Computed example of a mutant assay.
Amino acid sequence: MNTPRRTLLKLSAATLGGLALGRPAWAQQPASTAPSGPIRIVLPYPPGGSTDAITRFIADKLGASLKTSVIVDNRPGAAGMIGAAAVASAAPDGRTLLFTNTALIQSPLIQPQPLYNPMTDFEPLTLVADAAQVFVASDATPAKTLAEYVEYARQNPGSAYGSLGVGSTGHLYGELLKRKANLNIVHAAYKGDTAAIADLLAKQLPAGFVSTVMAKTYGDAGRIKVLATLGPARVPSMPNVPTFTEAGFTGFESIGWIGMLAPAKTPAPLVQRLSAEIATIVKSPAGARMLADSGMLPRGTTAPEFGALLKRDQQVWQALVSQSGIKVAS
């Protein structure tokens, strides 16, 4: 979309939003706070995997609640930046939403020319869930603990570790581990859990960071080795897996999240309605169960609460980028 047209769309939406706010929000009919047509949820990752399943679950429930069609548009690439940029440039009418994860904040921090500004180009809707990641090794890697992996990596300089993209949580923490343990390991970026797990199972990837559900599924089946989890505490679904801190490495306490956002300047009534609808879905028995089964902690926050988290995250991940030394060449 060219700049003049984008500007015109945003000005038109802002004008309409201002007119709507001329009378008390509670005095409006519910229909006036809902998007005026089909909704598209952009997921910046490929089909398959737990995040895709969660997005489609929410899309189905949201469509039923708002009595409209809601589709999921998978747009992988550039560690989530391509899909996020598409939403940032969309009309702020509530009909294009973004379902993403912590990479929304992380990716622009290491890119010389970011495709969007995470703090100004979006309206937060709701934090869907907290989502930890787990460091695992392939069956061919002779390591059953994080300490054993570190020793393996020292004896095999140049071995690869995988993550869900450049600038992702796994990438940042992999480079931090590389520095703290003085390892010579090489980052391998994947577009999603499915591709990373495939290479781990094929014994083409020695180790990597994957979602908790993938770690538990294939770890319980004995097909990969689950070494350590990120975060301040053990994951409830994997109580026997130690945290990085318990394994002797501090600085790995922050975890990721998944959440929903809209383009900047989306009118407040639309933001409030969408935020409430999605939070309700997340907190429903079926929604909470699905998220818990995926190894996540269901949240369903308000828009302001999610916005406050994004501001805190900006500082946390900026500091970690500095510690890890990650830089992407222009």
Rank of each mutant, 00 (worst) to 15 (best):
residue 117 N to A: 12
residue 258 I to C: 10
residue 314 Q to R: 14
residue 28 Q to E: 14
residue 162 G to S: 03
residue 163 S to K: 09
residue 220 D to A: 12
residue 101 N to K: 05
residue 122 F to C: 08
residue 234 R to T: 12
residue 113 Q to D: 15
residue 25 A to P: 10
residue 35 P to R: 05
residue 28 Q to N: 11
residue 195 A to L: 12
residue 128 V to T: 04
residue 283 K to G: 07
residue 36 S to Y: 04
residue 46 P to I: 01
residue 74 N to R: 12
residue 190 Y to T: 01
residue 264 A to E: 04
residue 220 D to Y: 06
residue 114 P to Q: 00
residue 130 D to T: 13
residue 273 R to Q: 12
residue 103 A to M: 12
residue 54 I to R: 10
residue 154 R to L: 01
residue 200 L to M: 02
residue 68 T to V: 01
residue 117 N to T: 11
residue 19 L to R: 09
residue 198 A to L: 12
residue 268 A to N: 11
residue 21 L to E: 14
residue 98 L to V: 05
residue 73 D to I: 08
residue 305 E to N: 07
residue 109 L to Y: 00
residue 74 N to D: 08
residue 122 F to D: 01
residue 77 G to L: 03
residue 67 K to W: 05
residue 280 T to G: 15
residue 3 T to E: 13
residue 46 P to T: 10
residue 45 Y to C: 08
residue 241 V to L: 09
residue 330 S to G: 13
residue 194 T to E: 15
residue 234 R to K: 10
residue 314 Q to T: 13
residue 95 R to V: 14
residue 124 P to K: 08
residue 181 A to N: 10
residue 85 A to Y: 05
residue 130 D to W: 15
residue 127 L to Y: 03
residue 262 A to Q: 04
residue 145 T to W: 05
residue 165 G to C: 03
residue 37 G to P: 03
residue 31 A to V: 15
residue 161 Y to L: 08
residue 102 T to W: 11
residue 16 L to C: 13
residue 215 A to I: 04
residue 39 I to C: 02
residue 286 A to C: 04
residue 116 Y to D: 03
residue 281 I to D: 02
residue 306 F to T: 00
residue 148 E to Q: 15
residue 18 G to C: 12
residue 284 S to Y: 03
residue 152 Y to L: 06
residue 167 G to P: 07
residue 15 T to D: 11
residue 323 Q to M: 06
residue 245 T to I: 00
residue 23 R to D: 09
residue 217 T to N: 11
residue 217 T to Q: 13
residue 297 L to R: 10
residue 268 A to T: 15
residue 82 I to H: 11
residue 191 K to W: 14
residue 276 A to M: 06
residue 35 P to S: 01
residue 221 A to H: 06
residue 89 S to R: 15
residue 52 D to E: 08
residue 262 A to L: 02
residue 4 P to N: 08
residue 144 K to Y: 12
residue 103 A to P: 01
residue 27 A to E: 11
residue 189 A to N: 08
residue 295 G to F: 04
residue 217 T to D: 04
residue 279 A to C: 04
residue 14 A to E: 14
residue 263 P to K: 00
residue 226 V to L: 04
residue 201 L to T: 02
residue 180 K to M: 09
residue 280 T to W: 04
residue 268 A to S: 14
residue 198 A to C: 06
residue 231 G to I: 11
residue 262 A to M: 00
residue 31 A to T: 15
residue 22 G to Q: 12
residue 236 P to C: 07
residue 330 S to N: 14
residue 85 A to L: 05
residue 222 G to A: 00
residue 101 N to C: 10
residue 162 G to V: 08
residue 266 T to Y: 05
residue 255 I to M: 12
residue 54 I to G: 07
residue 136 V to P: 01
residue 43 L to T: 10
residue 113 Q to G: 09
residue 86 A to P: 07
residue 63 G to F: 06
residue 128 V to R: 01
residue 242 P to E: 03
residue 195 A to P: 01
residue 315 Q to W: 02
residue 139 D to V: 13
residue 277 E to D: 15
residue 183 L to F: 00
residue 92 P to G: 01
residue 205 L to Q: 11
residue 29 Q to D: 14
residue 265 K to D: 14
residue 45 Y to R: 14
residue 118 P to H: 06
residue 15 T to E: 12
residue 202 A to K: 09
residue 166 V to M: 09
residue 54 I to C: 08
residue 275 S to M: 02
residue 289 R to Y: 09
residue 308 A to Y: 09
residue 300 G to K: 00
residue 90 A to F: 02
residue 58 I to M: 13
residue 171 H to I: 07
residue 201 L to M: 07
residue 81 M to C: 09
residue 269 P to F: 05
